[in-house]
Amino acid sequence: INDTDSGTRKFGPGHFDLVVIDEAHRSVYQKYRAIFDWFDPLLVGLTATPKDEVDHNTYRLFRLEDGVPTDAYGLDDAVKEGFLVPAVGIAGGTTFLDRGIRYADLSEDEKDEWESLDWGDDTPDEITSEEVNKVLFNESTVDMVLADLMAKGHRVAAGDRLGKTIIFAKNRDHAEFIARRFDNQYPHLAGHFARVITHGVSHA
């Protein structure tokens, strides 16, 4: 839009009658915003996750009230009309994940291991369930969750194989830790069955 090599702008503000913006929640606060500000057409924005944060506001781009899109096609409608299937939740957990860890409840060996960890200035007396994977990548907890997944996860190929599954990790280090534990627990599947996928992985 800033190209003036020919002495005039190639695209004036009225060049287009309609601009369609896919993934509009991403576009509004990146460099593409300049395009939307320059051109003066009708705008159609498509997104599954509109944002209403002060500096990342999808609705404001379209001069709409926050939280009130021009039109919406909800999950219930998409399921009813056969375009999507409903999610089926299965609850699972471990004592560590549900209740956290208290030093006083540990065995003597576990207390020794606790004391050998680098906690920084202060060794805590307990770790809440919310903090478990923030401060401690616990092998036995990850192993139990992976075993639960392998035993109860969605099966394909007439039940012979676990279906494609996404495990959400706290960060890249946590994801790599989970992948290492998987390879350790299931050596016959190591290196190809469970893979870490992040924005930093080529051809993710």
Rank of each mutant, 00 (worst) to 15 (best):
I1C: 12
N2K: 14
N2T: 14
D3F: 02
T4F: 07
G7F: 05
T8M: 10
K10E: 14
G12I: 08
P13R: 13
P13T: 01
G14W: 15
G14H: 15
D17F: 05
D17M: 03
V20L: 14
E23P: 00
S27V: 09
K31A: 15
R33G: 05
A34V: 09
F36L: 13
D37F: 06
D37E: 11
D40N: 14
L43P: 04
V44K: 07
G45T: 00
T47I: 03
A48H: 06
P50M: 05
D52Y: 10
D52G: 12
E53H: 05
H56E: 13
H56L: 12
H56M: 15
N57Q: 07
T58K: 04
F62W: 01
L64W: 03
E65A: 13
D66K: 06
G67N: 04
V68A: 05
G74F: 15
L75W: 10
D76E: 10
D76V: 04
K80R: 11
E81M: 11
F83N: 12
A87F: 08
I90W: 07
A91R: 09
A91L: 15
A91S: 15
G92M: 12
G92H: 13
T94L: 07
T94S: 04
R99S: 08
G100F: 00
I101L: 09
R102W: 14
Y103L: 01
L106R: 05
L106G: 01
K111Y: 02
D112T: 12
E113F: 08
W114P: 00
W114I: 05
E115Q: 04
E115W: 08
S116G: 09
S116W: 05
L117F: 14
G120Y: 02
D122W: 06
D122E: 14
I127S: 00
T128C: 11
S129V: 00
E130Y: 07
V132D: 00
N133P: 14
V135H: 11
V135R: 14
F137W: 10
F137A: 03
F137S: 07
N138F: 13
N138V: 03
E139K: 12
S140A: 14
T141K: 10
D143N: 11
L146C: 02
D148F: 13
L149N: 07
L149F: 04
M150Y: 06
K152L: 10
H154P: 10
H154L: 11
R155W: 02
R155V: 05
R155T: 01
V156Q: 07
A158P: 01
A158V: 11
G159F: 08
G163R: 08
I166N: 11
I166Q: 12
I167F: 04
I167G: 00
F168V: 06
A169D: 00
K170W: 11
N171H: 03
R172D: 09
I178A: 02
A179D: 02
R180M: 09
R181Q: 06
D183S: 06
D183L: 01
Q185I: 03
Y186A: 01
P187I: 01
P187N: 02
L189C: 04
A190V: 00
H192C: 06
F193Q: 11
F193R: 13
R195T: 11
I197K: 13
I197T: 11
T198K: 08
H199S: 15
G200D: 13
G200T: 15
V201T: 03
H203V: 09
H203L: 11
A204F: 09
A204N: 09
